[in-house]
Design a protein around this nucleic acid. Sequence first.
DNA 1: AATAAATGTCAACAAGGCTGACATAAATTT
DNA 2: AAATTTATGTCAGCCTTGTTGACATTTATT
Lengths: 150, 150
Amino acid sequence: MPLDVMGLFFFAYRDFVGDADALLERQGFGRAHHRVLYFVNLRPGMPVADLLDILKITKQSLARVLRQLVDHGYVEQKTGETDRRQRLLYATEKGRGLFETLSATQTSRIEAAIAALPPEGKRTVLRFFVGMVEPEDRGLLDRLKLTEEL
Amino acid sequence: MPLDVMGLFFFAYRDFVGDADALLERQGFGRAHHRVLYFVNLRPGMPVADLLDILKITKQSLARVLRQLVDHGYVEQKTGETDRRQRLLYATEKGRGLFETLSATQTSRIEAAIAALPPEGKRTVLRFFVGMVEPEDRGLLDRLKLTEEL
DNA sequence: AATAAATGTCAACAAGGCTGACATAAATTT
DNA sequence: AAATTTATGTCAGCCTTGTTGACATTTATT
């Protein structure tokens, strides 16, 4: 059993998400808000249904978090042009600012970890991550343009 | 910003932990129980304090989960020999069995992802993970013998 | 006109984090 | 020997973020 991979995966993810926790708390937000901010910043104009597929949570859970982000002016919703039933999600200027603050420590941590690897290190790590994702979701990774370096 | 690493890290971890969720639910357990089972299987005889350091949760949170594991016969506690204040944690035969069941799908997922990488792939990934961990906790990784392949 | 889809909302519940306060036994320090 | 510290446990209550089920609204599709 690859016990070492399991364990180190746990520690790495623990410290990766831990970076933003203190900052989030000050805003009265949690990790769920951070995840929404990440995807809304990554692909502005994403419909609610896509976010539900990505986060794999229920719409009720998402609604609660999203409402707070909208109410506090971090995210705005616009009616879709081609399909007017959709609410397309956009980060506001304020939302982009918060996301960048939250990401600053994560970014340094990632860049330091990659800098210590051999030349092809980043590609290898990204390929590992893709390999860990459910095959049926790999197309989604492409659509989100997360696999462009591969 | 290494947005791709952030996103793929999220998806990979989501599907990694998701593997065990269905199985855990049948036992009435959750991810917290799984994490305890992992570390108790990895290093039998671990004192409670070490587990608290690792999981970075409060003793009250751990106590709840640990109590259920002990009550259902998956984990047993023995008084430390050198320091009789300590309660050393051991997985029972039943606990080892459950852990192996929970790990089966995670193991295949990890092995498949690594098999698709170049020869040095596993080492690169492990080194990345270590690089993501807080420097002050890297000694802990060594003590847990999670860095032996590096 | 009927149905389906995208979204929102209300209500109730559970897991698993948290804090604070207090208790006990064993080790260590004074 | 006494005082203090350490390792652990426990009670009580709170918060975030997940869950299910039911129902409403608007817009698209059939």
